[in-house]
């Protein structure tokens, strides 16, 4: 795979200059430092989860625990059914992805490559929602879902997931970049629009789709306030369950136990992300076709 990316902005030739070498070295150091700062919280959380309560609160806090207390994990599992909430999160995430990408994809394709009356108006109809602060319609939104009888069902996430102007914008921009000739020739060959969409537009947009899936995942993964309002008890996604059951104001669960739970919640997305990482690189080389 790597050999196909023969060069980027800099070529081998550039590295003969000392100044370029210096700047490049500085850049690498910067990236390394930034990477370290990104990793630090993870390490901190993990090590914190293995300390005793006392050690957790000593000042200055030792970096490594003096005893690696794996029992904290056992105790946290009795408190918190992590697999259940994790399953809920995945369920919400998969539904969101399917619904949002299907509806948004079709609409973006239509706006990019199909005949649509009043196209500008319709685009505006979608994109102007980007300008409206979510807090101003938080309550009506909630009452609206209640009105549809969607509260405490997964539909309350799946259907509104399609109403995402940001995704629509990104996808439409990407589709705009695909040559119209590709579709023209397919149409001449008698392909239906659905075939053009599924057979040409979708495969060509793999990189942006992967990005959207990732963005969608982090939204589902992060949101706690809204899902806590919409869902009850057993159907809560992980972040909301942690918020309402572990770190709610006034919680007396010990901090080392909290960190053990947090560490467990951090592992699955990291693994998932590592898995997707290959996908991204694969997708990117396809993306170069876009031109």
């Amino acid at each position: 795979m790597k050999n196909t990316r023969e060069r980027a902005i800099m070529s081998r030739y550039d590295f003969r200059k000392t100044s370029v070498k210096l700047v490049y070295g500085l850049m690498v150091i910067c990236i390394a430092l930034i990477s370290l700062s990104m990793l630090y919280p993870f390490v901190n959380t993990f090590l914190g989860s293995l300390k005793t309560t006392k050690e957790f609160f000593t000042f200055p806090t030792p970096f490594f625990p003096s005893n690696w207390l794996w029992e904290n994990y056992k105790e946290s599992l009795t408190l918190f059914n992590i697999t259940k909430y994790f399953k809920n999160t995945l369920f919400i995430f998969f539904g969101n992805t399917v619904f949002s990408l299907t509806f948004i994809g079709l609409a973006a394709y239509s706006l990019s490559h199909l005949r649509v009356p009043m196209k500008k108006w319709i685009t505006l109809y979608f994109l102007s929602t980007l300008l409206i602060p979510a807090a101003s319609y938080l309550i009506p939104n909630y009452l609206n879902l209640k009105g549809f009888g969607l509260l405490n069902t997964y539909w309350a996430f799946w259907l509104p997931a399609g109403a995402n102007a940001f995704f629509l914008l990104l996808l439409k921009n990407f589709f705009d970049g695909i040559h119209k000739e590709l579709f023209e020739s397919a149409r001449i060959d008698g392909a239906s629009e659905l075939r053009c969409f599924l057979g040409i537009a979708i495969p060509l947009s793999a990189p942006i789709l992967v990005t959207l899936v990732l963005l969608g995942f982090s939204t589902t993964w992060n949101d706690f306030y809204w899902s806590y309002l919409v869902m009850k008890e057993d159907k809560l996604p992980l972040a909301a369950a942690i918020y309402s059951k572990i770190i709610y104001p006034g919680s007396t669960i010990n901090w080392n136990i909290r960190f053990a739970i947090l560490t467990m919640t951090l592992i699955p997305p990291v693994v998932l992300f590592l898995f997707f990482q290959r996908f991204i690189i694969g997708g990117l080389s396809v993306g170069a076709v876009k031109g």
Partner: peptide
């Protein structure tokens, strides 16, 4: 029994939806 802890920043929305 149902778990929702009283918060003065959430009571309005709870009441609006009667939940």
């Amino acid at each position: 029994p149902e778990y929702w802890k009283y918060e003065n920043t959430q009571i309005a929305i709870k009441m609006a939806s009667n939940s």
